[in-house]
Measured scan of single mutants.
Amino acid sequence: ALNRGDKVRIKRTESYWYGDVGTVASVEKSGILYPVIVRFDRVNYNGFSGSASGVNTNNFAENELELVQAAA
């Protein structure tokens, strides 16, 4: 299972961040479909780089994520 702070690569092909590595911000335990919230260094097309207006978190299912580096 994934944990907060883990570095993960995104495998959801239609995602803006496909192939990117993000950090797990939190994992919901309530049984929702996309329980893993991942935070990225770059914002998506809703904002400009360096601006706070873009979105830099997204929810994924565990099977859409590949663990790159476990949290220390």
Rank of each mutant, 00 (worst) to 15 (best):
S30L: 07
D20C: 09
G22Y: 05
F40Y: 02
I32Q: 15
N63D: 10
T13C: 11
N58W: 15
K29Q: 13
Y45F: 09
V36Y: 13
G22T: 02
N63Y: 14
G22S: 03
N63R: 08
T13N: 08
F40V: 02
T23S: 04
R42E: 10
K11D: 04
P35Y: 09
V55A: 07
S30I: 07
S53W: 08
Q69G: 07
K29C: 11
W17F: 04
Y45T: 15
R4H: 08
E14G: 12
L2H: 02
A70T: 12
T23A: 03
T57Q: 12
A71R: 05
K11Q: 08
N58K: 05
P35L: 10
N59H: 11
S53G: 11
L65H: 02
K7Y: 05
L65W: 01
W17R: 02
T23Y: 08
A70Y: 12
Y18Q: 02
V38L: 01
D41V: 07
S30P: 09
A1Q: 14
V21A: 01
V24P: 01
R12Y: 04
I10W: 02
S26M: 10
S53K: 07
Y34G: 04
V38Y: 00
V27H: 06
V36I: 13
G50E: 10
N56M: 07
N63C: 11
Y16Q: 06
T57E: 11
R12T: 07
V24R: 15
V8M: 01
Y18H: 07
G47W: 05
R42K: 14
G47M: 07
D6V: 03
V24S: 01
S49E: 15
S49K: 05
F48Y: 13
S49C: 15
E28K: 10
K29D: 11
N46W: 06
A70I: 09
D41F: 07
R12F: 03
Y45A: 15
N63K: 08
S26I: 08
D41W: 05
S26N: 12
I37W: 15
V21S: 00
N44T: 04
Y16N: 05
S49D: 15
S53C: 15
N56D: 13
R9Q: 05
S26D: 12
D6K: 02
V8A: 00
V36P: 00
V24L: 01
K7F: 07
P35W: 12
F48G: 15
A1G: 13
D41C: 12
A52D: 15
Y45P: 15
Y16K: 05
R9N: 03
D20K: 11
V27L: 06
E14K: 05
V27K: 03
S53D: 14
A1M: 10
Y18C: 04
N58P: 03
V55D: 08
L33F: 07
P35E: 11
S15W: 03
S26P: 03
Q69S: 10
R12C: 05
F40D: 00
N3F: 09
S26L: 08
V24A: 00
D6F: 02
S26T: 07
D20V: 09
V36N: 01
Y18F: 11
F60T: 00
K29M: 10
F40I: 03
V36C: 02
R39Q: 10
L33E: 10
Y45W: 12
D6M: 03
I32H: 10
I37Y: 07
G54R: 04
L67V: 06
L67W: 04
A52C: 15
N3M: 12
L67R: 04
D20S: 07
G5I: 00
A72D: 13
R42Y: 05
D41G: 05
K11V: 06
V21K: 01
D20F: 07
W17T: 00
R9L: 14
I10A: 02
D41Q: 08
A70F: 08
G5Y: 02
S15D: 06
V36E: 00
G5R: 03
T23Q: 05
L2S: 03
K29S: 12
P35S: 11
E66Y: 05
N58T: 11
G5K: 03
A70P: 11
N56T: 09
S30W: 09
E62G: 06
R4T: 12
T23D: 03
S26K: 14
V55R: 05
S30C: 07
A25D: 14
S26F: 14
S15N: 03
F48R: 02
E64W: 02
D20N: 06
Y18T: 03
I37F: 07
F60H: 01
R9H: 03
E64S: 00
K11I: 09
G50N: 11
V38Q: 00
K11T: 10
G50C: 12
I10D: 04
A71L: 09
K11S: 04
V8P: 01
G31A: 12
S51G: 12
V38S: 00
K29G: 12
V36S: 00
G50Y: 07
R4C: 11
S15G: 03
F60G: 01
L33T: 10
V27F: 14
L65E: 00
N44C: 15
L33Q: 12
S53N: 12
A71H: 12
N59K: 07
V36L: 04
G5P: 00
G31L: 11
F60M: 01
K7N: 03
T13H: 09
E28F: 08
G54S: 06
V38H: 00
D6A: 03
A72L: 10
G54E: 07
T23G: 00
E14I: 06
F48M: 14
I32K: 09
R4D: 04
G19P: 01
N63I: 09
N44L: 09
N63A: 11
T57D: 06
L33C: 10
S49R: 04
K7M: 09
Y45I: 15
N63L: 05
R9M: 09
G54V: 06
N46M: 09
N58S: 15
E64A: 01
G19I: 04
T23W: 08
N44R: 08
F48Q: 14
V38M: 00
G22Q: 02
G22K: 00
W17L: 02
S15K: 03
E14N: 13
F48C: 15
V38A: 00
V43Q: 05
N46E: 15
Q69Y: 09
G5T: 02
G47Y: 06
N3D: 06
R42L: 05
L2Q: 01
